[in-house]
């Protein structure tokens, strides 16, 4: 399953590092990454492949939300289908 991970929050050191580290520990591959500053906020999007992970979607989501809390950023993970259906014909 491919999913889209988004991170929004106040910019600070190490956000990409912590997120990548967590994904690596869950055996999740990052396929695409894009990052910008929107309206003063650090805004990152990753497309990830969760096929090799032994954790289910719920567990992955939970771990990322906890990571978000500890870094004071908002981390969401959603099935890529919702974005594809809305923005691709």
């Amino acid at each position: 399953m491919r999913a889209v991970l988004t991170v929004v929050g106040k910019d600070k050191k190490g956000i990409i590092y912590y997120v990548s580290k967590e994904l690596n520990e869950m055996n999740i591959n990052i396929e695409d990454i894009s990052q910008t500053i929107m309206q003063g906020y650090f805004t990152m999007m990753m497309v990830v492949d969760m096929e090799s992970s032994t954790l289910d979607f719920e567990a992955i989501k939970k771990k990322l939300e906890l990571l978000g809390e500890s870094c004071s950023v908002d981390i969401k993970i959603q099935h890529e289908a919702i974005f594809n259906c809305m923005h691709k014909l």
């Binding site: 988004t6 969401k76 923005h87």
Partner: peptide, 11 residues
């Protein structure tokens, strides 16, 4: 996938 479209959906 474009970052602005991703965030449009989230918004």
């Amino acid at each position: 996938m474009k970052i602005n479209e991703i965030f449009e959906t989230i918004e």
